[in-house]
Amino acid sequence: MNKIKILVLLSLLVMAFLLDVALGSVHIPVKEVVRILFRPDAANESWIYIIEKIRLPKAMTAIIVGCGLSVSGLQMQTLFRNPLAGPSVLGITAGASLGVALVMLSAGSITSLYTIRELGISGSWLVIAASSIGAALIMVVIVSISSSLKDNVIVLIVGVMIGNITLSVISIWQYFSSPELIKDYLMWTFGSLGGVTGNQLLILAIVVSTGLLISFFSSKLLDALLLGDNYARSMGLTVQHARLLIVLSTSVLAGGITAFCGPIGFIGIAVPHLSRALFHTSSHRILIPACCLVGTVLMLICDIVAQLPGSQTVLPINVITALVGSPVVIWIIAGPNKLRGF
């Protein structure tokens, strides 16, 4: 049964990937896309350029973002034992944004992708590091608060408030910046899968794969944490170490992606629930790959929709993920299962 689901998801993935590469302001037939992917020499040169330099990196970014955000959301839901946890909900992406903003502040420059690009490879690493540290700081704060507060909803509200505080700090800094910088920052907050090319794409891929590997290797720890800290400890888990490992990989995943693509919401909270509903399991050994698959497909579909096929306009990716993700969140809260799963 699971094999069929995986096959269906994989074929959906291939279809969405090809469509994502084919659709855009310049329409390239899917047949041609396949040909260019496998035998690039025998095709229209401008198409080759568009695919290799723009569409392929964007689709790859969508895949990386889909995997990274979904798995970081899954880890957070287990760690906080809270079905509504996710990087954008608990202020983790806000922390990452603060990190990005701080780098730009100290560089005396602007917080936009264009600047990151100008800083080159070392700049990319710097931004990723700052973003991940920002994410980790907020996570540590929320982990320490949640260990003394038993109520999920209170932790959630505290997380949202901490996210707000972080965003206010960024806003204060924005207030003293020039209008052009604010426009660039706003563009970044809309989220974008485009523009991550070449070395940046490689760096993002390395960072996210590292995070995913750590996460997969901690799937047994995550399983034990499902029963709560006390049971986890009674089964031989050193809870502090496990938490540290999970905070580390979550921060790297959410921080790395936010640094390059902006704060993309709702994927992190929605995909884990969709994966659980699809595979009927809470075993992380299955859920982590499942989240990668579902997250990738969902992210590619969001990107296809964002391009408004047939038009010249491209909508910000955040708008689309919110449109897709919010109903899922409503379903989690008000649906037949009522907050049951995490």
Partner: peptide, 14 residues
């Protein structure tokens, strides 16, 4: 091994 009063709320756990 322990059996505690802690509530195991993970609804997806079979």
């Amino acid at each position: 091994s322990l059996v505690l009063t802690d509530n195991v709320r993970s609804g997806n756990l079979d």
